[in-house]
Amino acid sequence: MACRLCEVGCKVEHSEHKHVIKSFKREKPVARLLVEESGPLSFATQCRHCDEPACMFGCITGAITKDPETGIVNLNAEKCIGCWTCILMCPYGSITRTNGARPTAAKCDMCPGREVPACVEACPNRALVLMEDEEPAVALEDAA
């Protein structure tokens, strides 16, 4: 419903302070998912954790890897040099850039350590649902 609370949740989760007020006031956190809107239609887009991730194939540093166990496509910001090839490769437009002196690529990491990703938890309308296996990892539904 385009409230964008998923983006807020994502920003906080991926901030240094992990506190909704402090993170927003002290940092400039970037959301790893994006709500797209066109008229009344809206949906959140984020990494699909593809079986054959074009971002990983294109990554020049080896910073992007796919975990064979979980299927999660991870991005190691330490290794990333910010060439943005992954941004060019991702057909979903699901990789973004961090703010700061040394910007790196940032993407959905499925919130390690959390049972439910922050975006899903933040969604008040269950438009974001966590789905496993055959389906895309985080399914997007045109918000109900």
């Binding site: 385009a2 269950r126 438009a127």
Partner: peptide, 18 residues
């Protein structure tokens, strides 16, 4: 709250499942 409206922007706030 998406209840008494026909405005699609507002109506979709009510997820029938919830």
């Amino acid at each position: 709250w998406g209840i008494t409206t026909q405005n699609p922007y507002l109506a979709k706030r009510l997820n029938p499942e919830i």
